[in-house]
Design a protein around this nucleic acid. Structure first.
Lengths: 229, 229
DNA sequence: TTCTTGTCACCTAGGTGTTAATAT
DNA sequence: ATATTAACACCTAGGTGACAAGAA
């Protein structure tokens, strides 16, 4: 891999330190689901397709949540920050990503609220939270509320837990009422078409919707048991 | 039709009078969607399939809502009450429903909360509210949260709007904080297999998922334009 | 060249009535 | 007889990468 691999082995990730936090959020812990699969992709250099209409991520960003106040309301959301201010291109002959210049103008910064937001802590912790409605687009004029990214640029997904403060002047406490989580193994390059053929093969082997491109079920079986067991 | 037809021509239905109501709910008005289709079914004697696994209703119960407090929280739910204490059977030769005895023991009374509950009035009023996740079953042991009904019995769907009272002692005001709506044109007989062949044909003509049983697209086109225009 | 777009066959996932077999 | 069940073919709805054509 060409990119610095910042993946860590810990099961849960601490929030980035940003001053004093409300105990409603400071005690929240988050665990990334399908971590072995994310790591397999990250090792190859994850690519995510962006289309005009919007494309889901694969793997899907899914988390297990612990430590919420069961009776408090929370909103869950994601955003995506540039990993650097570079534009990349893929050198097919050497199977490596190369810097192709300075980053294009930043895209409109959007956030994706999990559609179940807001909900009680008990509800969020009951089962895995899946961001399978989140879609990525390269259309700057998108009006479907999708996340807008620049193709051939690298991004880091972020996950935010926001305590919905019932106090009238809750805006004053905005900084204390949220906690952010970053899983470095989920970083990726946005692309309009896959560049690294090994990424394509791993997507085909692991995404049920791409089953039609598998040469045999055995391929996928070997691949996935190797990753997941 | 054999059943007394209590359908009315009004566009919105008033709640059943049940004492003083909180203005948060007393001003709420509800409009049944696809009313002409419901009336066409009701004229024939609507039948709804119940299965062990749970079957959706068709037509789907959908409403447009007016008069909510845009900033207040509401929960929306449905339940089903027996229309009488009789059990029916269908006489194929005369194409008529006959009383076949007294009702079977009542099924566990369940309610179905719209999955978006609770939500702000503004959210509910933004677009048509559809109960397309609601399923009917005849399995008394059902643990999927579906509505349990007795086959060959008649039911009246009810729709309830509940204001989620933020007060600590909200339980005290339960009676004032909800309003119920009954659309008589949505009443039906629960069945495990369709009895009236004309109901079957109308389902096939109007339900997109039953398209495979249409002899020609024209049949459906004639049928639906007749009903809906 | 390099990157993007639109169309397509092939999937997943699940909602239909039909039908034959079974239960009561 | 009458009512219920389970398997099934045929749909809707929408998520895949492949591919050819187009754009920069």
């Amino acid at each position: 891999m060409s990119f610095p691999s910042g993946s860590e082995a810990q099961a849960t990730v601490e929030a980035t330190g940003q001053g004093p936090k409300n105990p409603r959020v400071s005690s929240v812990m988050v665990q990334l689901e399908m971590k072995p699969l994310w790591e397999e992709f990250n090792q190859l250099g994850t690519e995510m397709i962006v289309t005009k209409a919007g494309r889901r991520m694969f793997p899907t960003f899914q988390v297990k949540i612990l430590g919420m106040d069961t009776l408090a309301d929370y909103a869950l959301l994601m955003d995506f920050i540039p990993l650097d201010d570079k534009r990349y291109r893929y050198a097919f002959h050497s199977s490596a990503w190369l810097v192709a210049g300075k980053a294009d103008p930043a895209t409109p910064g959007r956030v994706h609220f999990h559609p179940d937001s807001p909900a009680k802590g008990a509800q969020w912790m009951r089962q895995i939270v899946s961001f399978d409605k989140l879609k990525l687009t390269n259309n700057l004029m998108d009006d479907n509320g999708h996340i807008i990214l620049n193709s051939m640029h690298r991004y880091q997904p972020r996950f935010h837990v926001v305590f919905v403060d019932p106090r009238k002047d809750s805006a004053r406490y905005a900084q204390e009422n949220f906690k952010s989580f970053v899983f470095t193994e989920t970083q990726f390059t946005a692309v309009t078409a896959y560049q690294n053929h090994r990424i394509t093969q791993l997507k085909i082997a692991s995404n049920p919707f791409a089953k039609g491109f598998r040469e045999s079920d055995l391929d996928s079986w070997y691949c996935l048991t190797h990753i997941l067991l």
